[in-house]
Simulated scan of single mutants.
Amino acid sequence: MSHRKDPVKLTGRTILITGGSAGIDLAFALKFLELGNEVIVTGRRRAVLDQLKAEHPTLHAIQSDVADAAQIAALATRVKADFPRLDVLMNNAGIMLSQNLGVPASDLAGLMTEMEINVGGVIRMTSALIDILIANKGTVINVSSALAFVPLPSSPIYSATKAAVHSYTQSLRFQLEDKGVEVIDLMPPGVKTELTAELPAGDGVTLITTDELLKHSFASLRAGTAEIRPGQAQQLAFMRRLAPAFINRQLWKAAKKLVPIEVK
């Protein structure tokens, strides 16, 4: 069941979006900019951020890696000094990898990369900025996924990270409800971006466009929906309750071809 609160104020705010240099991250950044907000995006690639700044001069772009605790701490110090009115944090940085769980990983440290970025980045960024968000009665928007409800077995670690973010966001909402901070869980289905380039359309998987995601998401923000489930995300949440074995098997059928082949 989606929680409902007051409509989210969408103009005149100072917004930090992690991983905001590409994909849906960038789409949200540009939409918020269009609505009259001050927007800061972060990313790991300096050249991409420089190009983005050249194309959108009013956008603030800061190089920072959400997988690096020291860089997050430095980013938080800089943001609090340069943008004291910061009142929205959108945790959106993430990567998705296909994994074959049936073979030993050659890089055990690398096996945790998705966890460090997708989960560690959300937890550390939120903690590093929680004081200014509380002071400014702000909003936290965590981007989890429809795969928090039903995993895509070819991307098992990614799916697990999104389930973790969804759970964390629920707890965060309870802990901040008396501090004047809104906590929103945005749970996109498959969106047509570089991240989902390998996902097969059909076979039970429906991909929506970035424009469709923005339209649904901003309508839900205006309606005060705290758990936003665009497109197939709502269907997966329903099917998880109604027929979990069936919907899990359907996604496995769709994803089986994406599991990396074992090299002998």
Rank of each mutant, 00 (worst) to 15 (best):
Q250M: 11
L59F: 03
Q51W: 03
K257I: 07
K137Y: 02
V143H: 09
K5P: 03
G202Q: 05
A164L: 03
S220G: 04
I24V: 15
R78A: 12
V103Y: 06
I132C: 06
E116K: 13
K253H: 14
V205H: 03
D211S: 15
K80W: 08
T209E: 07
K192A: 15
P153E: 01
L258S: 07
R249E: 15
E55A: 15
N118K: 13
V48Q: 11
L176P: 03
A254S: 12
A47L: 14
Q99P: 05
A160T: 07
M1A: 13
I72A: 02
N37F: 06
T58C: 04
T113F: 09
Q51K: 15
Q99I: 14
V8H: 06
G224C: 11
T210H: 04
M96Q: 14
A233W: 01
L186P: 07
A233P: 09
A76Y: 01
L97A: 09
I228A: 08
E198V: 12
P156F: 04
Q71L: 02
Q99T: 15
F149N: 07
I141T: 04
A197Q: 14
D87N: 14
A54W: 00
I132V: 14
G180H: 06
T139L: 01
R46T: 11
L236Q: 08
R229Q: 15
A201E: 14
K53A: 10
M90N: 07
A29Q: 03
P156I: 04
G102L: 12
L101Y: 10
V66G: 00
I134R: 08
L186E: 02
G120Y: 00
D65C: 01
T225I: 15
K257Q: 12
A226C: 13
E55C: 02
V39Q: 02
R249G: 13
L89N: 00
I24L: 10
I134N: 00
R173I: 06
L75C: 01
S167R: 07
E114T: 02
G110A: 07
S106Y: 00
L172S: 06
H3F: 14
L86G: 04
A69V: 09
S145A: 00
R229G: 04
P244S: 08
P104Y: 08
I15L: 05
T210R: 12
T196H: 10
A201R: 11
